[in-house]
Design a protein around this nucleic acid. Structure first.
Lengths: 216, 216
DNA sequence: ACGTGTGAACCGATTCACAGCA
DNA sequence: TGCTGTGAATCGGTTCACACGT
């Protein structure tokens, strides 16, 4: 795949920040701002100008010295880097309370991600429709994900099923999982897993609160 | 507050892992396992034995050399460290799809956290009940949070209201916010903010997927 | 003059490797 | 013997500071 710079390894965190930069840039674009400096944009972000510039420098030089960055152009560049310049279909597994809430969440479209199909093992849920998506019985999961060539899944099933179902997902071609279940998934290491763990986030907030350490 | 060790500063990430250790220990406890070694427990976690030992060593020596860690005792120690050995009431602001899903989420109780009150600015929602919690109009927010002395809030309002409402929350005594809105909050730095950003997590997953870099 | 791009310095966190203790 | 606890070594990422281009 087209490497812009060949030198070095890209910090994992730099990628996460790229999404945040993209969001900020889109916001500036809506405000009709054409050009922005690293100083300006990082006012809206939780980082410093040097970090912004360094992160972008892993992928190329997108700014103009003495001027700043063209907002529209940089949006397109970052979308190209992230791969969100095209629509990705994603699957949702587990249509419980959280799952159905995500079915109605518009925020994924920000990154061109579209929940295209959803499954639940509760047969009484199958057929119900949330936000344009019809819930399918889980027995159809493997077949449909394979047929539709979906690569990304949101996993919102109870903890005790998460490992087993994630293995099924890998079998039918899923390559990336956003895991909401409070367990660590053990999968082949070419499978990309991100974990959203609200309870443990709150756990560390309680610690910080109790110990009055200043936030960052 | 009672420092066990006095030497050094505790890595932020070590605290996050403490929550994960606690969860794993509780799981072992349910399986009637009495003693566990750092080797054993890290099989269920995304880390290595040395990390587990080092993390605990910031707070004291809880293991027995040649043996391992007493599961029940370590659970109590970590709960004491995190501060989750007592129930914390939390407030939920924004009873949209995500907010109401969280009202029904049992996982917070794992860390002794209880959603005690919920608010929404949509008056037609006020009075409705989700998972034992009655939605209150947002006009009552400041008064009630102050009266109930709540220190932690879940913020599930649309992005454009998040900054303003978070300032209101700080005014009435909130010290920690778990922010689900896709914006960076600017608050005094004794306010602890954690950000749950599902869309940007997915954004970086797409990058990793596209670039086939092996997961971790 | 101004803001980017980047090597170098720095800093914090992870991992190693082994001493210490049951 | 076996596993913990921990200084020391290492690693990766952030920040600095300035040369460079416009």
């Amino acid at each position: 795949m087209g490497r812009k710079k060949n030198k070095d390894i890209i910090p994992h965190e730099a990628i996460r920040r790229l999404s945040l930069y993209l969001r900020a840039l889109k916001w500036l674009s809506r405000k009709k701002i054409k050009v922005v400096s690293s100083d300006e944009i990082t006012k809206y972000l939780n980082t410093i100008p040097a970090q912004f510039r360094k992160d972008l420098s892993y992928f190329g030089g997108f700014g103009k010295r003495g001027v700043g960055y063209n907002v529209e152009a940089l949006i397109r560049e970052i979308e190209k880097i992230l791969g969100t310049n095209m629509v990705w279909d994603i699957a949702l597994i587990g249509a419980g309370k959280l799952g159905t809430a995500l079915l109605g969440y518009a925020g994924f479209m920000e990154f061109n991600l579209k929940i295209a199909i959803a499954f639940d093992n509760d047969r009484s849920k199958a057929g119900r429709v949330f936000g344009n998506i019809r819930i399918e019985p889980i027995s159809r999961m493997k077949k449909e994900i394979r047929e539709k060539k979906i690569k990304i899944a949101l996993l919102t099933v109870p903890a005790q099923y998460a490992q087993k179902i994630s293995e099924d997902l890998v079998q039918c071609g899923i390559k990336a999982i956003l895991n909401f279940a409070p367990v660590n998934l053990h999968l082949a290491n070419d499978i990309h897993v991100a974990h959203v763990d609200m309870a443990s986030e709150l756990g560390s907030l309680v610690y910080r609160l109790k110990h009055k350490s200043s936030h960052k």
